[in-house]
Computed example of a mutant assay.
Amino acid sequence: MRVHRAFAALLALGTPALAQDSQQQARAIAGEPVAAPQRLTLADLPEPTGKPIALFDGRSLDGWTAWLGYADPAITYQAKPGATPIGTSRDTKSDFAVREIDGAPAIWVKGETWGSLVHRADLRDYHLRLEFKWGAKTFAPRETLPRNNGLLYHTHGAPGEVFGTWRPSSEFEIMTGSTGMIVAVGGKLRGRTNVSFDPTLIAPHLRYRAGGTEIDIVNGTPTWNVEAATDAERPVGEWNTLDLYVVGDRAVHVVNGVPVAQVRDLATIAPDGTRVPLTHGQIQLQSEGAETWFRGITVEPIKTLPRVVVGE
């Protein structure tokens, strides 16, 4: 999920004053654009401290719970949608199922109705690996926008707490051109990372950069998400491997072996305004407008994060 997508799409479609304002905000936050992208690699991969566990058994959705948002996804980001989320009030077999593709079983996410599959395991200090690929279908209101989905981690809170559709979490974005982007899902979630100003992006024009300007990712502000360092996704129709390394309140996002983002100091904001470290939670697989397949979902315990190295 990319929060405030409607605003970003408006900028992309051509509102010069808004686009200029958003670029000025990004420049004020991160400074002038950098001359060249970074070449990032991984070093010191952690040794697992236990056996891998499969979150998908290859036969069923045992361990996963479905939740659906609004019947009309176009109202999802409205302040007062005037409708009730579907939630668990209907059978979701036409939304999420186990089907065979490329000769093997996978989790099929239709994408037409927005929502998610949440795994029951409460995870901390782990390396998660999965494979995903896009299906052929996209749905309104995003049928002309980039395909969109997401791997949400450190999930907590109530079903539908965020826009009636998702639960609060940190997001490893799955979106054509932006897979690996960092998004804070929910207004009370925070995470720190480093960025550069990239005027070629739609708002907020911020791209992950090792050693760049430190920011706090906060929904509803000019730092609501941070683009992946590079587009490491394979062409639509091919399988991609995602690796998510999480230790405590820190995470590393890796796409097809390429590290594309890091986030640290993940936290929730308590009623008194204090920052409470977020160190564990569940996994959500999103449904957000594009048919998607997932397979090979495993986690193994780790104690350290890999190191992200900047190449020359």
Rank of each mutant, 00 (worst) to 15 (best):
residue 229 A to T: 04
residue 94 S to F: 12
residue 99 R to G: 06
residue 185 V to C: 11
residue 39 R to D: 14
residue 11 L to P: 04
residue 21 D to C: 08
residue 45 L to D: 07
residue 157 G to C: 12
residue 156 H to Y: 15
residue 231 D to L: 12
residue 5 R to N: 13
residue 58 G to D: 02
residue 169 S to P: 06
residue 114 W to D: 07
residue 142 R to C: 01
residue 167 R to L: 13
residue 304 T to H: 13
residue 145 L to V: 01
residue 37 P to Q: 02
residue 281 G to L: 01
residue 176 T to E: 15
residue 280 H to D: 10
residue 136 A to V: 13
residue 44 D to Q: 14
residue 260 V to T: 07
residue 233 E to L: 13
residue 66 A to V: 00
residue 138 T to L: 03
residue 113 T to A: 05
residue 172 F to S: 02
residue 308 V to Y: 03
residue 170 S to I: 14
residue 208 Y to K: 06
residue 18 L to K: 11
residue 111 G to D: 03
residue 236 V to H: 09
residue 34 V to H: 07
residue 92 T to G: 06
residue 174 I to D: 05
residue 7 F to P: 00
residue 74 A to S: 14
residue 258 V to A: 10
residue 244 L to S: 01
residue 102 D to M: 10
residue 224 W to M: 10
residue 242 L to I: 15
residue 20 Q to M: 06
residue 71 A to N: 11
residue 231 D to N: 15
residue 202 I to M: 11
residue 106 A to Y: 08
residue 128 L to Y: 03
residue 126 Y to W: 10
residue 254 V to I: 07
residue 289 G to A: 01
residue 235 P to Y: 08
residue 293 W to V: 02
residue 175 M to N: 07
residue 233 E to F: 04
residue 9 A to M: 11
residue 240 N to Q: 12
residue 226 V to F: 08
residue 98 V to E: 09
residue 68 L to E: 02
residue 285 L to E: 01
residue 303 K to W: 04
residue 241 T to K: 10
residue 199 P to V: 14
residue 41 T to V: 12
residue 249 D to R: 01
residue 285 L to C: 06
residue 212 G to S: 08
residue 192 R to A: 10
residue 166 W to M: 02
residue 87 G to M: 10
residue 234 R to A: 14
residue 276 V to A: 05
residue 234 R to M: 12
residue 153 Y to D: 03
residue 32 E to T: 10
residue 43 A to S: 14
residue 310 V to I: 15
residue 261 A to P: 02
residue 50 G to Y: 04
residue 265 D to K: 15
residue 28 A to L: 08
residue 184 A to M: 12
residue 309 V to A: 11
residue 251 A to G: 05
residue 269 I to Q: 09
residue 170 S to C: 12
residue 277 P to C: 01
residue 64 W to R: 01
residue 10 L to F: 11
residue 143 E to F: 04
residue 25 Q to V: 05
residue 5 R to I: 09
residue 3 V to S: 12
residue 297 I to Y: 04
residue 187 G to N: 12
residue 242 L to F: 11
residue 155 T to N: 09
residue 64 W to Q: 01
residue 157 G to S: 09
residue 56 F to E: 02
residue 302 I to D: 11
residue 233 E to V: 13
residue 114 W to E: 06
residue 148 N to S: 14
residue 215 I to A: 11
residue 72 D to L: 14
residue 278 L to E: 07
residue 137 K to V: 03
residue 18 L to N: 13
residue 35 A to K: 13
residue 51 K to W: 01
residue 166 W to F: 14
residue 118 V to G: 00
residue 308 V to H: 05
residue 156 H to L: 13
residue 89 S to H: 12
residue 233 E to D: 14
residue 172 F to L: 09
residue 271 P to W: 00
residue 196 S to F: 04
residue 298 T to Q: 10
residue 115 G to L: 00
residue 283 I to M: 05
residue 32 E to H: 06
residue 267 A to R: 03
residue 192 R to Y: 02
residue 151 L to I: 04
residue 228 A to I: 03
residue 163 F to P: 00
residue 273 G to T: 08
residue 39 R to W: 00
residue 260 V to K: 05
residue 34 V to F: 07
residue 46 P to S: 02
residue 273 G to R: 06
residue 76 T to Q: 09
residue 50 G to I: 14
residue 245 Y to I: 10
